[in-house]
Write a protein that binds this DNA or RNA. Structure first.
Length: 172
DNA sequence: ACTGGGTAAACAG
DNA sequence: CTGTTTACCCAGT
């Protein structure tokens, strides 16, 4: 996992309260608004350094922009050290997908030089620690079908809709 | 050894 | 042209 002290934080956005976790290297995790309401004393406001407070602000702004289909002006540093080399390669490849565009799992696989690792790419997508900012939602199955989304297909659909991406029906 | 956010080819409606 | 089945691929756990 991640070394050193972790700093949880709540990121308020128009789409709900996201939960973030910062490591000493930057933003390490981001979670969609969900059930467990974070304990107030877990928020960084009280104990954290100015550095982390700044990252939190950047994260909040970047998130708000992304949720509205815009390109964030600045991103906080992302700590991907929790992933394997393969996963990090996948995440970086996803981060390079422009707003409003999509790629298939197979294309990502090709991009990172493992043309046949499409399935492993799917797995790496699911392991993406920082959804939205690392746009795992822009990765679709071949031929414009939506594929899956561990954080909930509704989120994937909503994010894509906000970016104006047209989808195709899906059976699954 | 098994799983999964996949895929393409081969058939069936 | 869509829906199902089948066989393969591959990193993570």
């Amino acid at each position: 996992m991640i070394r050193g002290r972790l700093h949880p934080a709540v990121i308020r956005t128009s789409a709900g309260d996201f939960r973030a976790v910062f490591s000493s290297r930057g933003l390490a995790q981001l979670q969609f608004p969900s059930s467990p309401p974070p304990a107030p004393d877990d928020d960084i406001e009280q104990s954290a350094s100015a550095q982390i407070a700044a990252w939190k602000r950047l994260t909040q702004e970047a998130l708000e922009s992304s949720l509205n289909g815009r390109v964030p002006a600045h991103l906080p540093p992302l700590d991907l050290s929790q992933g394997t080399e393969f996963q990090q390669a996948v995440w970086l490849a996803m981060a390079a997908i422009p707003v409003g565009h999509t790629k298939s799992y197979g294309e990502i696989a090709q991009t990172i030089g493992r043309p046949k690792a499409n399935r492993a790419v799917g797995q790496a997508c699911g392991a993406n620690p920082i959804p939205v900012l690392i746009p795992c939602h822009r990765v679709l199955a071949a031929n414009r079908k939506i594929g899956g989304f561990s954080a909930g297909l509704d989120w994937k659909h909503r994010l894509l809709a906000r970016e104006g991406v047209e989808l195709r029906a899906q059976a699954v």
